[in-house]
């Protein structure tokens, strides 16, 4: 029997989606976008049909002014999730307590649906590369990261999501595949997984592994969110640039991910060459249609 469920529509300004499926995952937020400065005013003025927004945590670790004003105004209209880039969970530097404190303050302000960051390191010896540098996938790194995620989760009082990064190098120190490592991190730390479909595609091309093997190797119960993004294809290698539309092979992989993991909160992450909001919404509608067609998930 089909049951009509409203997807938390009481919390969602501008939301028009209603799911026709009696098996919606409890954690399903719908289809979201990364909140970008270029679109702040338009989001407030037009309340576009986006189910939720993801915000980059560090962009709002400021004391006040316009960024915070827009953030709180939009938070009143939409559910949000927080996505960080500076936790540096894999670094051998001590966890940055000042950063964690800022993160917790922002969590308390925004009350996001969840908090995520990346399975990577961003710096060492108190120097930040501001890049998502890959880990060696071995037991030393595994023990290190699991311990640190546990500390972060205890501090924040909630499980976090860890995202797979795109990478261009493989260390000789690696002893297992990235997906085995990611799975083990989630299993041992209790964190969940933010699966970036574009990053899987980029890394699969750069390291010549099967993206489907990656999907098949990830524990179904641990994934809570998908990212979609664009990349730049240089032929012999691919760079994760977030400045293009989502590429066709990534849409294909997204379909495969839906088939394996079921309906999943999905967002498009655009960080450069930002198009008009309506263009991103049109791209998000492609993701919705793929989900509808793949899972018989309905949007009225």
């Amino acid at each position: 029997m089909w049951v009509v469920l409203l997807v938390r529509s009481d919390q969602r300004g501008g939301n028009t989606s209603s799911a026709v499926n009696n098996a919606l995952p409890e954690h399903f937020l719908g289809f979201g976008l990364g909140l970008r400065t270029d679109h702040f005013q338009e989001v407030i003025d037009t309340k576009p049909p986006v189910d939720w927004f993801e915000v980059v945590s560090e962009n709002f670790m400021v004391n006040g002014g316009k960024p915070k004003h827009y953030l709180h105004s939009i938070r009143e209209l939409y559910p949000m999730v927080m996505h960080g880039v500076s936790l540096s969970i894999g670094s051998t530097d001590p966890l940055n307590k000042a950063y964690l404190n800022q993160l917790k303050v922002l969590v308390n302000e925004l009350q996001p649906e969840w908090v995520s960051d990346h399975l990577c390191w961003t710096g060492a010896h108190q120097v930040n590369s501001h890049d998502l540098l890959p880990m060696p996938y071995n037991n030393e790194a595994l023990d290190h990261i699991v311990d640190r995620i546990s500390h972060v989760q205890d501090y924040l009082g909630q499980p976090i999501l860890m995202e797979n990064v795109s990478s261009y190098i493989t260390y000789v120190e690696s002893e297992m595949t990235e997906w085995e490592f990611l799975n083990e991190v989630a299993k041992r730390s209790g964190c969940y997984i933010l699966l970036d479909i574009n990053n899987i595609y980029v890394s699969a091309r750069n390291h010549n592994f099967s993206a489907q093997d990656y999907l098949n190797g990830i524990d179904k119960d641990k994934v809570r969110q998908f990212h979609l993004a664009g990349h730049t294809d240089y032929g012999d290698y691919v760079i994760d640039t977030h400045d293009h539309d989502v590429a066709d092979p990534v849409w294909t992989l997204y379909k495969a991910a839906l088939e394996r993991f079921g309906l999943m909160s999905t967002m498009i992450e655009r960080d450069d060459n930002i198009p008009p909001l309506q263009d991103l919404i049109a791209e998000l509608n492609i993701a919705k249609r793929i989900a509808q067609n793949t899972l018989n998930y309905g949007v009225r």
């Binding site: 962009n59 670790m61 400021v62 500076s86 108190q126 930040n128 590369s129 501001h130």
Partner: peptide
């Protein structure tokens, strides 16, 4: 070299 978590301060 950057020692800040946010590029705002770099």
């Amino acid at each position: 070299p950057s020692n800040c978590t946010s590029l705002r301060d770099y």
